[in-house]
Design a protein around this nucleic acid. Structure first.
Lengths: 316, 316
DNA sequence: GTTCCGCATGAATCGATAG
DNA sequence: ACTATCGATTCATGCGGAA
């Protein structure tokens, strides 16, 4: 039996199913991962055929269920492929199968990729979103919503500058919907809670590994579902993006993957990027408005790019 | 048997399943609808229990399949509810069932609702997106992508005015994905194809009707999948938003719903808003590229404002 | 004709209370 | 124990009347 403290910040080589078998129950606060997507090509890393994806996944998720704390969360970033002109159903099949396995399907976040791959096809537009499925062991799980608040909309400034009489009292909805509000309470608010659509750009660029996962994605879930000092598992870790996010946010990680070369690369990244942002722990809500300083550049510069870039909407 | 030409621009009262039974095969170019969502409340319009939703839906979609042209498209706007802390699976069950019925699940568009329902809960954020599922009878369906192009991002102006050496040749992706680009080709481009995430606000507020469907949503699909003169069906038409969009865009409509009062309201809306041409509006006041011309362009000018709205992103 | 400002509304969800 | 009802919470937008 592996002792818990020996597990902190390790990159373990092997199939997650086997590696996890020697790890005790109820250890992790969060599992966040982007598994190899289904692919009908043979002999590639992650080349699991769509028709066999669920049966491949279930033995592994069985172990995830065991090692996750009862209050923990499992975030699965996945998207189905188009096979023969249709969206394959292995992802929705997987949701059903995971429920049967004992997982609660709590939520589905949408990761909107702001810079999705270019391309043109006669019968479809660019696919610019992926699912981030949230599963839990229990209805009562840990969540730290204040850590990821976002700036309030621009409407607020004008709206809140001139309060009417009705704004100063609790004004109940006339139609009996149960809604009421007291706008006075909002004066001085600068941040609001986010919603379940995440707008992040993919990281294109210079990495050898085709980064499926922008750093900001695991970082957002780590902040939402863990506290500093908690332990995060990524069982399909690749080049270790989840590990980098953990170190920058003061969480401990356990990474697993089958390819030894990935471990080397990941540990180099983690060591380098951790040093560059030494001392940075949690991100406070007010920091969203702060101007990034020199020492914070690595982490915060990245973040603010994501947060501030303009969204292209669809005209109708 | 109803003759085709008598069907143009009608609001038919009754259950779609029954009304459609007297309509010939292969008539419609597009079916776009937002059916009553599952709801466990009793005695309300649309109060179908989640556990019985699929069996309720299938007899109706069987008729949709019959009356849709082989090259036509079926767009289904729907979203599952939370039941007992979990996302209910009736929507993904429905996808599977529709495939069994003979539909191809071609695409899933995400409608991001910029003004989602407010509220705060300890274990989830606000739900701000819905599915727009695309189904087809055949892999070869009609699509008019040029009709919904969006202005190119603001990056283009600065980037294209100073081309680097690499921009003038084909620069292949570093990650070996096979993607490459030749930025030189983009000079002079002002519009690009959209992607499969739609950013629209819901229409709430001081209207008599509670529009589940913002006008812009059916309008976008009507433009993407039909040409002027085509016939569009909305079998759960409610207050007739789809009909308004059709008239503004020069398409013919057949609307169906069970409540006679809706017909009255819909025909008033269609008559009024068609005359006024004021329906399809943008979301954000930042009217950027659009140079609105006078009369007929009232519609088009408003449409393009949607493209310019800024998106609030989630900082990480 | 425009812009500004007040204000009502919403495909929501949870937890407590009542039957 | 299980189900139905109700109060609390929350943010962005369209509409209509006023400036």
């Amino acid at each position: 039996m592996v002792v818990e403290r020996n597990l902190q910040d390790q990159y373990l080589i092997g199939d997650a199913k086997d590696v996890l078998s020697s790890i005790p129950n109820n250890l992790f606060d969060l599992i966040v991962t982007s598994p190899p997507y289904a692919d009908s090509r043979k002999n590639t890393y992650g080349g699991i055929h769509p028709d066999h994806y669920v049966e491949w996944f279930l033995p592994r998720s069985q172990e995830f269920l065991r090692v996750l704390k009862p209050t923990g969360t499992f975030i699965l970033n996945i998207k189905e492929k188009v096979v023969d002109g249709q969206r394959h159903t292995y992802v929705i099949d997987l949701i059903k199968a995971l429920q049967t396995q004992g997982w609660l399907w709590t939520e589905e976040f949408i990761w909107h990729k702001k810079n999705s791959h270019p391309g043109k096809w006669p019968n479809r537009f660019r696919d610019s979103w992926e699912r981030c499925l949230q599963f839990n062991k229990s209805k009562h799980f840990a969540m730290y919503q204040e850590e990821v608040m976002v700036p309030i909309g621009t409407w607020a400034q004008s709206r809140l500058s001139h309060l009417s009489t009705k704004d100063r009292i609790r004004d109940n909805s006339k139609v009996g919907s149960g809604f009421g509000k007291r706008v006075l309470n909002w004066v001085g608010k600068t941040v609001v809670y986010p919603d379940n659509v995440l707008h992040l750009a993919t990281e294109c660029g210079n990495k050898n590994h085709s980064a499926a996962f922008p750093l900001a994605l695991p970082a957002w879930f780590i902040k939402t579902f863990t506290q500093p000092g908690d332990v995060v598992l990524d069982p399909f870790a690749g080049s270790g993006t989840t590990g980098v996010a953990c170190k920058q946010l003061g969480r401990n990680y356990v990474l697993i993957d089958t390819v030894p070369d990935y471990k080397t690369e990941a540990e180099k990244r983690i060591s380098h990027e951790t040093k560059a942002t030494k001392g940075i722990r949690g991100v406070h809500p007010q920091e969203h408005h702060a101007v990034p300083r020199k020492s914070l550049e690595k982490l915060r510069g990245h973040q603010s790019t994501l947060a501030s870039s303009e969204e292209k909407s669809v005209p109708v």
